[in-house]
């Protein structure tokens, strides 16, 4: 079964969804991402969904789940590049995804994550593991 690749960039993990999401793929992504956050000590997760055209309630709920899991592991999730149609669908499904941060594009999303990383670094609390593995 194919999986969605997870890229590490500094203290952040980047996931871009380029294929039609189905339920098993989403479950696999959740598992992989959780493991990766734990192993790298990443402080930010950026999920890029500009190629995602079709969402259902399950995908929406899984996005919320991933964000919640990341938060438990002290990583902030930013979803970027959502299409208007997808946003309308999610709202009509009653999924407001209030736990997720959003940004219009990758650039702004990375800026949000970077701001958090900088803040932590300034406090001298940057993840030790993230830097060790660099």
């Amino acid at each position: 079964m194919d999986r969605i690749p997870i890229l590490k960039l500094g203290g952040a993990l980047i996931v871009t969804i380029q294929v039609d999401m189905h339920d098993r793929l989403m479950l696999a992504l959740e598992e992989d991402l959780t493991a990766k956050i734990a192993s790298t000590g990443a402080r930010g997760v950026l999920i890029e969904i500009s190629a995602l055209e079709i969402v259902d309630s399950f995908i929406g709920r899984m996005l919320d789940n991933i964000a919640a899991i990341s938060r438990v592991l002290d990583a902030e999730t930013v979803v970027v590049g959502m299409r208007p149609a997808v946003a309308i669908t999610l709202i009509e499904l009653g999924l407001n995804l209030t736990g997720i941060k959003t940004a219009l594009n990758v650039e702004r999303g990375m800026a949000m994550i970077q701001a958090r990383l900088d803040e932590d670094d300034a406090d001298g609390l940057g993840s030790t593991r993230a830097h060790r593995e660099d």
Binding site: P84, A87, I88, I91, N96, L97, T102, A103, L104, R108
Partner: peptide, 8 residues
Amino acid sequence: AAARLMGA
């Protein structure tokens, strides 16, 4: 809420 999901 929809605008927020788009990041605005």
